[in-house]
């Protein structure tokens, strides 16, 4: 499947300052029933974005209007757990093209590279720095 190519990504970033975000949170198993790769973005972080009655959880960063952009910045060990590539399809379909963390689970990283989401690994200190920069102003990150 074709994906967007980029050399430089200029975008603001969405902070998700939680460690060990597993692929069951990224896309819960009950949304894996499709036989085609489309429409996964609407279920990205479903149970963190919405209450069980369908109302929006405003405090979740993806629902916070202060944040937007094509870059997701997440706590360490992002993408652990299930090998479901659907997690990356959901991240891509939602509009993210890069994920930044201090480290990624192995299968998730491979899946990102196969789908066209760039996994960017930074030091823990630098990650803290990025989170605080986003807090100060939702500043534009540049990824060469």
């Amino acid at each position: 499947m074709a994906y967007d190519k980029f050399n430089i990504l200029n975008s603001s970033a969405v902070p998700l300052n939680i460690d060990n975000v597993d692929t069951d949170q990224i896309i819960p198993a009950r949304f894996l029933k499709a036989t085609e790769r489309k429409g996964f973005g609407e279920n990205l972080f479903k149970d963190w974005r919405y209450n069980s009655d369908g109302t929006t959880i405003d405090s979740f960063p993806l629902n916070n209007k202060v944040y937007s952009g094509k870059i997701l910045v997440a706590g360490k060990n992002f993408g652990c757990g299930s090998s479901r590539e659907h997690a990356v399809w959901a991240i891509y379909d939602y509009g993210f093209r890069a994920v930044v963390s201090s480290f990624f689970a192995d299968i998730f990283k491979n899946n990102c590279l196969n789908i066209g989401v760039l996994p960017i690994q930074v030091s823990e200190e630098f990650l803290v720095d990025i989170f605080s920069q986003i807090d100060l102003n939702s500043k534009t990150l540049q990824i060469p």
């Binding site: 597993d22 069951d24 949170q25 819960p28 198993a29 009950r30 149970d47 069980s52 757990g81």
Partner: peptide, 11 residues
Amino acid sequence: NRNFEGRQGPG
């Protein structure tokens, strides 16, 4: 094998 949030059903 997994005790993730919602792994065995939402909530």
